[in-house]
Computed example of a mutant assay.
Amino acid sequence: MTSAMQDAMIWMNKNFGTDIDAAVAGTPITKNLLISIGIQETFYIWAKMYKTAKPEEVLAVCVGDTLDFPKRASAWPKNRTDLESHVKGKEMFKVARAALVRIAAVNSGFKTVVKNPSKFCHGFGMFQYDIQFFDGDKDYFLEEKWATWKGTLSRGMSELTAQTKALYGAGKKNLTYDESVYVAIAYNQGASRTKKNMVTKKFKQGYKDAQGVFYGEHIDTNLKATKGLW
Rank of each mutant, 00 (worst) to 15 (best):
Y182W: 14
T152Y: 02
G156Y: 13
F124N: 01
F141C: 05
F124H: 01
A105W: 11
K165E: 08
N79W: 09
F127M: 10
S74C: 08
L142T: 00
V101H: 02
E84R: 09
I185G: 06
Y177C: 06
N116S: 10
Y168F: 13
K138W: 07
N107V: 02
Q163F: 13
R72I: 15
W149S: 01
L142W: 03
G169K: 05
K88D: 11
S118E: 09
Y177G: 12
N174Y: 14
A73T: 15
D135Q: 14
I185T: 09
F134R: 01
A98M: 05
N107S: 12
A147E: 05
D135S: 11
L175Y: 03
F93L: 04
K94Y: 04
K78A: 08
A191K: 15
K138T: 10
S158E: 15
G136R: 07
G190L: 11
F120L: 08
R193Y: 11
S108N: 07
D135P: 09
D139I: 12
A147N: 01
S192W: 01
A170R: 15
A104Q: 03
M157C: 06
Q163E: 04
T176D: 07
Y182A: 05
G109H: 05
S158H: 03
A186D: 00
T164S: 15
A75F: 14
F134T: 07
E84T: 15
I103N: 00
G123Y: 10
P77Q: 09
K150I: 11
K145Q: 14
R193D: 13
T152C: 13
Q128G: 03
A104L: 04
K90Q: 14
S74I: 09
A191M: 05
P117A: 04
K78H: 14
W149E: 01
F141Y: 15
S85N: 14
G136C: 00
T176Y: 06
G123P: 02
A191V: 11
K115M: 13
P117N: 05
S180K: 04
E144Y: 03
F127D: 01
A184W: 12
F127E: 00
K165Y: 04
V183W: 10
F127N: 01
H122E: 02
V95T: 10
G89A: 14
A96Q: 02
T148C: 04
T148E: 03
W76Q: 09
Y168K: 07
G125T: 07
W76I: 13
A162N: 05
G123F: 06
Y182Q: 07
L142H: 01
L167Q: 05
N79R: 08
T112G: 11
A186H: 00
S154K: 12
K119Y: 08
Q189Y: 10
L100N: 00
W149L: 03
G89Q: 11
D65C: 06
A104V: 00
H86D: 15
L100V: 00
A73S: 10
H122G: 09
L83K: 07
K165Q: 08
A184M: 01
K78T: 11
L142G: 04
N79S: 08
L153N: 14
T148R: 02
R155K: 10
N116Y: 03
Y187Q: 01
D130Y: 04
T81P: 04
T152M: 02
S85A: 15
K165I: 07
T81Q: 15
V113T: 15
K165S: 12
A170S: 14
V106G: 00
S118K: 14
K88T: 06
S158I: 04
E179D: 06
Y129Q: 11
